[in-house]
């Protein structure tokens, strides 16, 4: 029962959704529409499960005093503060348990949840990703150092696209006569993006698409069962 019923649910739901696409009559359209709404609700609970699991894992790390356990207290505190601010005073357009918190908004300029988002989360997020600008440079050096045709193509495409999208590209090739305009760096960059890049992306999309179709069929037919766990 622990494994068979989930397999039956997966099969029935998957088959109904595929059939509904080809049978535009009741009840298939209604069932597939309702199933998609259910999916959204359960996926919402899955996100909450993820957050609660993060809380649980960090709590265990603190309880058993694992390496650097002191820092995980901050994770729990910042998580709790963000959640409580959101639940008590709501978000920009949504009232919380205490309503819209007019007094606190007058004092802070924003709701506490939005204040934390704008003044802490957004800065942390932008800085964390901007940090990658430094690491991407060292990664590029390591990637391009391999003197093969493939790595040279990668390097040439990256440099041409970057130069073509900056004012430097226009300055470097701006002097070219009208008959050689196709060698203008912004045009070369546009050409790479429009044709060879699209070709590569299309090949990846078709390959990945076929892979996803195959995996979906394996799951619906019950051949792929790893999502049920080992027990």
């Amino acid at each position: 029962m622990k494994r068979k019923i989930p397999l039956i649910i997966t099969f029935v739901v998957g088959v109904v959704l595929i059939f509904a696409e080809f049978i535009p009559h009741k009840p298939f359209g209604l069932i597939s529409g309702e199933l998609e709404k259910w999916y959204l609700i359960i996926a919402g609970f899955a996100i909450i499960l993820g957050q609660l699991n993060l809380f649980k894992v960090n709590l265990f790390k603190i309880r058993y005093k694992q390496k650097n356990w002191q820092y995980f207290i901050l994770t729990l505190v910042s998580f709790s503060i963000m959640v409580l601010c959101g639940i008590f005073w709501g978000t920009q357009n949504n009232p919380g348990v205490f309503g819209n918190g007019v007094a606190i908004v007058t004092a802070m300029g924003d709701k506490p949840f939005d204040y934390l988002f704008l003044n802490v989360y957004q800065h942390l997020s932008a800085t964390m990703f901007s940090l990658l600008a430094f690491f991407i440079a060292s990664a590029a050096y390591r990637a391009f150092i391999a003197r093969t045709t493939e790595s040279n193509l990668l390097l040439a495409a990256a440099i041409l696209v970057m130069l073509g999208n900056t004012s430097m590209g226009s300055i470097l090739t701006g002097w070219l006569p009208e008959s050689l305009k196709f060698l203008h760096l912004p045009r070369i960059s546009e050409f790479i993006m429009k044709y060879p890049n699209t070709a590569g992306q299309r090949a990846i999309m078709i390959g990945a698409g076929l892979g996803i179709i195959g995996s979906s069929l394996r799951i619906i037919l019950g051949i792929e069962r790893s999502y049920l766990g080992g027990k």
Partner: peptide, 18 residues
């Protein structure tokens, strides 16, 4: 880093609810 992780998780928790 840990504050970022906590705030990020909290943000998505509240977002999911609202």
């Amino acid at each position: 880093e840990q504050i970022f992780v906590g705030l990020s998780a909290g943000y998505w928790f509240v977002y999911t609810i609202f």
